[in-house]
Structures are given as structure tokens and as C-alpha cells.
């Protein structure tokens, strides 16, 4: 892939190579395919890859990125500002460091869903 290459550190698991126009999750999937990510609790959590389902959530601890829209059912605007994002919706602008923060507990998702504005998902 053309363009500058950035090192993406998945803390505790290994390194991936990312590119400015490539979703970070895609870089992580490729690194997993090459065996570069060790000791994952599970296979790397991958869902819709387009910001809707929330399973690839990570916390970016270092570095710059830009982001596509992601579903507020899984990441609030405040959380996004603090670096909690969906890996499928971010693109690196520098080397990045992050850790997995996947919403493994479905109960937690239910609690969050209930808290979200009724207005947004209820129709009419």
C-alpha cells in the first residue's frame, strides 16, 4: 500500500504496520494473519468493520489518528475524545499505541443501550 508507514503497538500483544488510508483494524487483522500478535485472549475481535457493531473497541494511548463516524451505541462523543474508539473507524496519522477494550460483557452493552437517548433509536 502506498504512503507513509506507521508502527501500531497493540500493548501486550505485538506490533502491526499501518498506513494513513487504511483502517487500523485492517492493519491489526493483517498482523494477526502473519502471527505478529501474541497472547490474544481470543482471536482479534472483528465484527462489521464499519463502525456499527462495536466489537473492535480499543483505547488509543499514544499517537494521532483521524476517524470516520462510529455508532454512538458503542462509543460516546466524550469517550471518542478520550481515545476510546472503534479500530475499524480510525486511520493513523502517526505511530499509534493502543489496548483492546472490547465490550465483552453483553450486560454492559445493555446498560449502555438503556442509557442512550430514547430519541435516537425510537421511531417515530
Amino acid at each position: 500500500m502506498a504512503g507513509e508507514k506507521f508502527t501500531i503497538t497493540l500493548e501486550g500483544h505485538g506490533l502491526a504496520s499501518g498506513f494513513p488510508h487504511e483502517r487500523v483494524l485492517v492493519a491489526l487483522e493483517r498482523a494477526q494473519g502473519f502471527g505478529q500478535l501474541k497472547d490474544l485472549p481470543l482471536k482479534l475481535p472483528v465484527g462489521c468493520r464499519r463502525g456499527g457493531c462495536g466489537v473492535c473497541r480499543v483505547r488509543v494511548t499514544q499517537g494521532d489518528f483521524h476517524a470516520d463516524p462510529m455508532s454512538r451505541a458503542h462509543v460516546s462523543a466524550e469517550e471518542e475524545a478520550s481515545g476510546l474508539v472503534l479500530a475499524c473507524c480510525i486511520y493513523p496519522r502517526s505511530a499509534l499505541s493502543m489496548r483492546l477494550e472490547t465490550p465483552v460483557v453483553i450486560k454492559e452493552k445493555c446498560r449502555k443501550a438503556a442509557q442512550l437517548s430514547e430519541e435516537e433509536t425510537s421511531w417515530p
Binding site: 463502525g51 457493531c53 463516524p69 455508532s71 454512538r72 451505541a73 442512550l116 435516537e120 433509536t121 421511531w123
Partner: peptide, 10 residues
């Protein structure tokens, strides 16, 4: 429908 969360209305 443009919204902040993906999914289905009905």
C-alpha cells in the same frame, strides 16, 4: 435515515 447509531427503526 441519518442517525448517530446504526440499526433499524422498523
Amino acid at each position: 435515515r441519518r442517525a448517530e447509531q446504526a440499526g433499524v427503526d422498523f
